[in-house]
Nucleic acid binder design. Structure first.
Length: 928
RNA sequence: GGGCGCGUAGCUCAGUUGGUUAGAGCGUUACGUUGACAUCGUAAAGGUCAGAGGUUCGACUCCUCUCGCGCCCACCA
């Protein structure tokens, strides 16, 4: 016998959460190596690393809730589970943040501070931000293994990045090239295509006289960099000009262009002819490349006109545009100006208009075949080791063949579409914070390249370097490296003496996060973790970074280790406010997950983010919703409180002798266990949670708990058995709920099991027991009986304290055994009769039973008959529909026989019920 | 310009291979403090599943079109 336990009346999360988390952490069970029992199967999720730019937001909370749910589920199922946490240095985002702070507080730019000092500031900021985030991740109850925590910019990851760069370069996938890139004049950096956002803007379209032609342009200032004119190859109007050169009068005098024919030109837009500015437009750059047209850069990295633009030099592009238009008008070169709307390319971080510029950059080639190397233990299906293939082909292959599954699957299409449009990935960034590109340029060759500007400097310069994949002082002085251009060997000593200069650029932040699934597991070293956990099981993240991140991880993993990074991608939706707007600080509609967790409990917040949501769809969150789930955690708490305070045995066995309600609740529990398990396996978290909630609140609390009160008063033996069922059901429920709401379940588990019971965290997932269909059906009838009596009571406003008398006609066998609880729950005195004896009773139907409730003269006959007539009508139309269906030969002939049978049964039941209602009505009429 | 998603009860959303008299929570209404829980209980009202066609014995579910909302991608200068 254990002593009865007293718990507070309502659940106060803050009294338990922190202590429990510490207890979990201390137990060591977050670390898969310390989990108890034999665990042959590994299961690993690497956490999408939050940026060290600030604090945790509600999006992180969704990510943590779902991943912790998966991890706890699989841990309970006996897998060796690793959830590997970490943070992301988020290069541009973090640098911008610190630059902004620096400017606000000290009115200094990063250049005023200098690279080293500035980086020290960023490092401090990142550290503080990291510490906050870790505390917050813990607050959410995340059961991740902190002993393996990683950071995208810590020493092991720096090593992995350098190694990855060197290997990809060796494979011929990384190259240096002169290309027009997205340049943000504010961030002073290039951006990848995905970092460009679009903003609709009203702009002017200038129709200009262009030598013998007229054409339309939105950017007259780029005329200074024009080197060609392009038309559509099939355009009859201009065919005769193709290949010819023309002198074009301009604001700085005449210049020469060549007319080329290219398919990208739209004959319908403008005059069907475009001016080509290879240095400042992506399309133009490609046209120029296809036709060997020279390039002339006129806009600099500061977003201003360069020295070669005469009197316009130094003006911003906007100023230059105004000035040039004015000058052209004077020269009579402007034909007309139209208004039109189009999408302006802007920096997704700061909103500044993008300037396309030519720059020497590092790229990853996605369309270049390379020699694919398979992983020995987890090879990619249907691809041979050593096969020549492009990254694009590989990336679509693994998704097309289902080796990587994306949930929800509609994103597969989006993924393919993205791949189809993918261009070489620009990985250089002209910012300071991040992974420095591990390349040292050979100064002599660089000089020769620059002197050779008349030719193509980039082809010369792009090979003039060595790659050093570790810090300079880790090399021996006499080690020799070779310049890729002059092919001469140089000692490290020479490099130290300053004959080489390190590339000033850093890598795109997605380069390092692309390695995340394996750089966190020890790669490039062949560590046990890497062998045990790669490929990882699931990558869970928001659909908004499918391209940025998910696709990059697939790319890196395939190229570098010949494996998929994860088997399943689960994409959650974005959390919006109750009006469906994005949460943002400026709108003031953000819900801070930690604030609401403090107010309503972490479990409630987690439930509100998981239930009522579907993958890939945005959800609306309100405090009311969270409060609703707080109510539920309290409900569970009180269920636990009741069981704990009412039961006085500590055993967990199911008794041999069981009542109908006992058999019913166990059967239902089996069904729930089975369905919840299946839904969780299928990533249907919401469905699993709803089934559990309905069972917990409905079947268990509303019915079984109430029935148990009656059973416990019946006999000592029955009371003991009831206790066993109560404790068993609660124990199973706590396990099933644990992945959703770890805290309250762990507290109740401790109270239920005592110290010897161990932590719920590492308990075992329940296996469904046997189902008892007959018990479920019988119970359903009795529940309907209770509901029918309650219904009539409510209808006639019988005060709750008053007991009524009820007669049941054609009650099935077994009524006497259930009588006690039926009477208690319906607050009635029930007797079985052959035929209703008393007058003035209200009637209802439950299953095959007819129930009469004596309302002691309170029955309003008119109302009673109106009620029955209403029921009759709906039943009649229902039956009519069924009968029509059953008369339909096509239905009988074509529908599966099981369906036909089912419809027949329904019709029979309806007919029976209808007959009885009609009887009621006549008796009601006869009485009057 | 392409592509995707959404439109189901007043609100937020479920609805798993087409076969229920279409469900839940919140809200509303009525009654209620019966020793776990008022962060609660019992019961009720509330939907021509955006609209129009089509396929089918049968459509919330599949197809086509229309309307409304949202998102993503794109080299119309």
């Amino acid at each position: 016998m254990t002593k009865k336990i007293e718990l507070p009346k309502s659940y106060a999360p803050k009294d338990y959460e922190d202590a429990l988390y510490r207890q979990w952490e201390k137990s060591g069970f977050f670390n898969p190596d310390k989990l108890p029992g034999r665990r042959p199967d590994s299961y690993c999720i690497v956490m999408p690393p939050p940026n060290v730019t600030g604090v945790l937001h509600i999006g992180h909370a969704v990510m943590l809730a779902i991943e912790d749910l998966l991890i706890r589920f699989e841990r309970l199922r006996g897998k060796k589970t690793l959830w590997l946490p970490g943070t992301d240095h988020a290069a541009i985002a973090t640098q911008n943040k610190v630059e902004k702070l620096l400017w606000e507080k000290e009115k200094k730019t990063r250049h005023a501070l200098g690279r080293e000092k500035f980086l020290a500031r960023v490092k401090n900021f990142a550290q503080e931000s990291h510490d906050t985030i870790v505390t917050q991740v813990k607050k959410m109850g995340s059961s991740c293994d902190w002993s393996r925590e990683a950071y995208t910019l810590d020493a092991p990851r720096v090593q992995a990045v350098a190694e990855a760069f060197r290997r990809l370069h060796e494979m011929g996938l990384i190259y240096r090239g002169q290309r027009v890139v997205n340049w943000c004049p504010h961030c002073q950096s290039t951006l990848s295509d995905d970092e460009v956002a679009y903003r609709p803007a009203k702009e002017k379209l200038y129709w200009i006289k262009y030598g013998p032609f007229v054409l339309a342009t939105a950017r007259p200032e780029t005329k200074l960099g024009d080197t060609a004119v392009a038309v559509h190859p099939q355009d009859q109007r201009y065919k005769k000009y193709v290949g010819r050169r023309f002198k074009i009068p301009g604001v700085l005098g005449e210049f020469e262009v060549v007319v080329v024919a290219d398919g990208v030109v739209d004959r319908e837009f403008g005059s069907g002819m475009i001016k080509v500015t290879p240095a400042h437009d992506f399309t133009d750059f490609e046209i120029a490349a296809r036709h060997g047209v020279p390039m002339r850069q006129v806009i600099g990295e500061d977003g201003r006109m360069m020295a070669n633009t005469g009197k316009y030099a130094g003006l911003t592009t906007a100023e230059a545009r105004a000035a040039i238009v004015r000058d052209m008008e004077k020269m009579g070169l402007i034909e007309k100006i139209e208004e039109y709307e189009h999408n302006l390319s802007v920096c997704y971080r700061c909103g500044t208009t993008i300037e396309p510029l030519p720059k020497l950059q590092w790229f990853i080639a996605v369309n270049k075949p390379f020699t694919f190397r398979q992983s020995a233990r987890s090879p990619i299906k249907d691809i041979g080791d050593g096969e020549k293939i492009t990254l694009k082909e590989l990336m679509s292959h693994v998704v097309k063949t289902g080796q990587i599954q994306i949930i929800p699957d509609r994103f597969v299409k989006t993924y393919f579409h993205w791949i189809d449009n993918l261009r070489d990935w620009n990985i250089s960034r002209q910012i300071w914070f991040g992974h420095r590109i591990p390349v040292w340029h050979h100064d002599t060759c660089q000089m020769l390249g620059i002197m050779d500007t008349m030719h193509q400097p980039d082809t010369w310069m792009r090979d003039a370097y060595v790659i050093l994949d570790k810090p300079l002082d880790e090399y021996a002085d006499d080690e020799i490296v070779y310049c890729g251009k002059c092919k001469n060997g140089y000692t490290i000593k020479k490099i130290k003496e300053g004959h080489f200069t390190q590339d000033p650029d850093t890598l795109d932040t997605w380069f390092s996060s692309g390695l995340w699934t394996f750089s966190t597991l020890g790669w490039p070293a062949e560590m046990a973790d890497f062998k045990n956990y790669h490929p990882t099981a699931v990558l869970e993240t928001g659909y908004d970074i499918l391209f940025f991140w998910v696709a990059r991880m697939i790319l890196m993993s395939l190229a570098l280790i010949g494996e998929i990074p994860f088997k399943t991608v689960y994409l959650h939706g974005l959390v919006r406010d109750e009006q469906g707007r994005k949460m943002s600080k400026s709108l003031g509609n953000v819900i801070d997950p930690l604030a609401v967790a403090a107010k309503y409990g972490t479990d409630a917040v987690r439930l509100s983010l998981v239930l009522g949501t579907t993958p890939g769809n945005d959800t609306r969150l309100s405090e009311e919703k969270i409060a609703g789930f707080r109510n539920f955690t309290n409900k569970l708490w009180n269920i636990g409180r009741f069981v704990l305070s009412q039961t006085s045995i500590s055993k967990f066995q199911i008794p041999n002798s069981k009542t109908l309600p006992d058999r019913w609740i166990l059967s239902r529990l089996s069904e729930v266990t089975e369905r919840v398990t299946r839904h969780l396996e299928n990533y249907e978290f919401s469905a699993a949670g709803e089934i559990l909630r309905d069972f917990t609140w409905g079947d268990f609390a509303d019915w079984y708990l109430e029935i148990s009160k009656v059973q416990k008063q019946s006999s000592p033996a029955l009371a003991k058995n009831t206790d066993l069922i109560l404790r068993h059901t609660l124990a199973v429920l706590l396990k099933l709920w644990h992945p959703f709401m770890p805290y309250v379940t762990e507290v109740l588990w401790r109270e239920l099991q005592g110290k010897e019971g161990g932590l719920l965290l590492v308990a075992s997932w329940p296996a469904p027991g046997a189902r008892e269909a007959r018990a479920e059906q019988a119970m359903k009838n009795w529940q309907e009986t209770v509901a029918a009596i309650r219904n009539l009571r409510a209808e006639y406003k019988v005060p709750p304290e008053r007991e009524v008398e009820a007669e049941i006609v054609s009650a099935p066998a077994g009524l006497s055994e259930e009588l006690a609880w039926l009477e208690k729950l319906s607050r009635s005195k029930i007797s079985a009769v052959k035929k209703a004896e008393k007058k003035g009773q209200a009637a209802a139907l439950a299953g095959s039973m007819e129930i009469y409730v004596d309302l002691a003269g309170a029955v309003d006959r008119g109302r009673e008959s109106a009620r029955l007539q209403k029921e009759r009508e709906s039943l009649e139309s229902y039956l009519a529909a069924l009968e029509a269906k059953l008369k339909n030969n096509d239905f009988l002939k074509r529908a599966p026989s099981a369906v036909v049978e089912k419809e027949k049964e329904k019709a029979a039941a309806a007919r029976d019920k209808l007959a009885r209602i009609r009887r009621e009505l006549t008796s009601l009429g006869a009485d009057g």
